[in-house]
Design a protein around this nucleic acid. Structure first.
Lengths: 344, 344
DNA sequence: ACTCATAATGACAGCGCTATCATTTGTCAA
DNA sequence: TTGACAAATGATAGCGCTGTCATTATGAGT
C-alpha cells in the first residue's frame, strides 16, 4: 500500500501552504484563480483525497446525512431510499443508513452513534420517537426531517402525509363503491398502520357499520402469504363481508390470490383495496385499487429540505404534506346488487 | 446543547489519566479490575461516548464495515442486507451502505470514499469490478468479501453461488418436466443475469433446442409489469413456446398474470420458472417454481468471514459456495401431451 | 501622499483520541 | 537482600485537517 497523499504533500508540490490547499477544496472563492488552478491540478495529479476523520475532527462537522428507517427489506422504505440517493447524487454529502428494525431502543442507539459523528443532517422515520431519542435529536445541532407522516409538533421539519386520512379515504372509497361490510387487514402494526386503522374506524363509524369482528391485525411482518392467512381468519369469523381494506399491497395481493383459490369473485362479490400502490397492483387480475403515496418524492424532498437548511436559506414551510391518491382500479368496481354476499 | 463529555473528563472524575480510560474502553484486559470498575461507572454516569472521528484519526482504523450493493430497492439485495444487519447486531461494528446503482464508476467513487475511512472490512457485490476498483481494493488493507457470486480469483474472500449453474439447473428442470421450447426472459442484464443466461443457453444447446428467438432481454429494471410485456414480446415472435425461464420472480409473476389474462393454462400449456424464490411465489395461482438462494445466509456469512479475519483467526476456505435449490411447484408440473402449444 | 478597506495568503494551535515508550509498583528466584 | 521481570499506569507526541487571527499586497478615496 503506497503512502497516503496528504494535504501538505499537495501544498509542497504547488509551493503554497497547507491551509491554502484546504481552502481550494472547501472555500474556493477565497483563493485567487491562478493558485486555485495549480492546486486543483496537483490534487488530481497526486490523487489526493481528504481524510474524512481528520476533517471531522478539525471542523466539528461531517458531510454525513444520517438516515434512520425501520426496515431495509420493506418496499416502502426502499422506495424512499431511492429518492434520497437520487437527490443526493452529485452533492458533497454521504448517506449513512441506520436500520432500526422497528425498535425504539435500536433507534436510540443509532441516534447516539450518528449524533456523535456530528452529521450535517438527519432523517428519521415517523413521529413517535422515544423521549430519549427526542433529547438526542434536540442536542444534535443539525437540521432534522421526520419523514413518512405528518402531524403533531415537528422536531424540526417534516415531510409525509396523514395516514389517518389515507385510511379513511380508502375506506370511504369502498363505501362509495357500494361495499358495506368492509374488513380491515393489518400486519406489522407500526404507528402508521395504527393510524390508518383509526381512519378506517372513523369511516366505518360514520357510516354506522363499524364492527370489531371486521378487524384482523397481527404484529407479524406483512407478506403475501400472510394476506392469504388473514383473509382466511377474517372469513372464518363472519361471512358477511363484502370488501377488505388491506394495510399494504402485499396483503392485498395475498387476499387476491386467496380469493382466486376460493373462487370468490373480485370485484363482484368482494372488493379489495390495498395500500402503497406497488407497481404490481396495476397488472394483477383484476387490477387492484390502492392508495398511492409518492415515496421517492418524499425522499427527495427530505434531502432538499436538509440542504436548504444546511446552506442557510429560509424554509417556506417546515411541514410538507405530500398527500395521497386513491387509484381506483377494477378490484373495487362495486358489488353485484344482491342480498349480502353468497358464501364461498 | 450541553458540553460534550470527553475522555479527559472521565479521567479527571476517576483520578486516572486519559490513556487509562481509553484502555478500559479498548483493551480492558490491560487495566486492573478496581480501576476498570471505577472508570466504567464514571463513563456511564457522565454519559461519555467516544468521538469516532478522533478515534479514527488517532488509531488509523474505524469500526466501519463498508457494504457496496447495486440497488437498495431490489429485493435480492435487501434480503442480503437483512442478513448482514442481523449478524452484525451486538457486535462493535457499524454498517456503512453504498449504493452503486449498477454503475462501475459509482462503485469506484464509493470505494474511494470508503477506503479513505480505513474500514474494518468491506463487502462488495459480484466479481466484475473495474480495474481501478480492484486497485483500490488491493490497497484497502482490510478483509474483503465479494458476495452474490463465486467464480474466478477472489480478491480476498467470496460467498455466493454459481449463477451459470443455477440458470442451467432451472432450464434443465423445465426440460425434465417435458417442456421443449423454453423461452428466456431477462431484465436488468447485470453480470449475474448474464451468467444465468449462459447457463440457460448451455442447457438448451445440450438438448439441441437452442433458438435465439426464444431469448428476450432488456436493460430496464425488472418489474412485474415488465414481465407481462416481455411475455407479449416473446409470444409475438413465435407461438411455438411451451415454457419460460424468468430471470427473477417479478418477471415470473408478471408472466403468470399475463397468462391468466390471455387464458394460457399454466402449467398445462405453459410452464413458468422464476428465480429467487420470493415468498409470494408459493401462494400464487398456480404456485410458481423458482430457484431458491439463501440471501440472508449470504449476508450473515459475509459478516462472519470478515469478523473471523478481523480477529485474526484462520479461515478454512476463502470461497464459500452456498448453492441453490430448484423449488418445484405447480407452475412447472409439465405440459399436457399434445402437438406443440395451441395458439392463445 | 496617506489612510483605509479589501483580497489573498500564511502561521499556529488544537480538535479528541491512541501508539509508543517510559515509569512505577509488585513479585519472586537466587 | 537484590536484581530481574511482569503488570499497571502515565507522559508525550502526534494522527490530518481547519478555525482563527495575523500578515502582506493592492487599489480606492481624499
Amino acid at each position: 500500500m503506497k503512502k497516503k497523499v496528504k494535504l501538505i504533500d499537495v501544498a509542497d508540490a504547488v509551493g503554497v501552504s497547507a491551509i491554502t490547499v484546504s481552502r481550494v477544496l472547501r472555500k474556493p472563492e477565497l483563493v485567487s484563480e491562478a493558485v486555485r488552478l495549480r492546486v486543483t491540478e496537483a490534487v488530481a495529479r497526486l490523487g489526493y483525497v481528504p481524510d474524512p476523520a481528520a476533517r471531522a475532527l478539525a471542523s466539528a462537522r461531517t458531510d454525513v446525512l444520517g438516515i434512520l428507517i425501520p426496515s431495509v427489506t420493506n418496499n416502502v422504505f426502499s422506495n424512499v431510499l431511492r429518492g434520497i440517493y437520487d437527490r443526493v447524487e452529485g452533492l458533497p454529502f454521504n448517506i449513512q443508513l441506520g436500520n432500526t428494525r422497528y425498535s425504539l431502543l435500536e433507534e436510540e442507539r443509532l441516534l447516539g452513534v450518528f449524533s456523535r459523528q456530528r452529521p450535517a443532517g438527519l432523517i428519521i422515520t415517523g413521529l413517535d420517537q422515544s423521549h430519549r431519542s427526542k433529547t438526542l435529536l434536540a442536542q444534535a445541532d443539525c437540521p432534522i426531517v421526520q419523514i413518512m407522516e405528518i402531524g403533531g409538533d415537528p422536531i424540526d421539519m417534516m415531510v409525509g402525509f396523514s395516514h389517518r386520512d389515507a385510511g379513511r379515504g380508502a375506506t370511504r372509497h369502498l363505501q362509495e363503491r357500494g361495499y358495506r361490510r368492509i374488513g380491515f387487514l393489518g400486519a406489522r402494526m407500526d404507528p402508521r398502520t395504527q393510524r390508518r386503522l383509526e381512519g378506517y374506524e372513523q369511516a366505518m363509524k360514520e357510516a354506522g357499520s363499524f364492527d370489531e369482528r371486521l378487524i384482523v391485525t397481527t404484529h407479524r411482518a406483512s407478506t403475501v402469504t400472510l394476506g392469504c392467512e388473514l383473509l382466511g381468519e377474517l372469513l372464518s369469523r363472519t361471512h358477511e363481508i363484502d370488501a377488505v381494506f388491506c394495510n399494504n399491497d402485499d396483503l392485498a395481493i395475498g387476499v387476491l390470490f386467496e380469493c382466486q383459490r376460493r373462487r370468490i369473485s373480485v370485484p363482484d362479490d368482494f372488493g379489495i383495496c390495498g395500500f402503497n400502490d406497488l407497481e404490481m397492483t396495476a397488472v394483477a387480475n383484476p387490477p387492484l385499487t390502492s392508495v398511492r403515496t409518492n415515496r421517492e418524492e418524499m425522499g427527495r424532498r427530505a434531502i432538499e429540505m436538509l440542504i436548504t437548511r444546511i446552506t442557510g436559506e429560509p424554509i417556506d414551510d417546515p411541514v410538507v404534506d405530500l398527500g395521497f391518491e386513491i387509484v381506483a382500479r377494477q378490484s373495487t368496481a362495486g358489488p353485484i346488487a344482491r342480498e349480502g354476499r353468497a358464501s364461498a
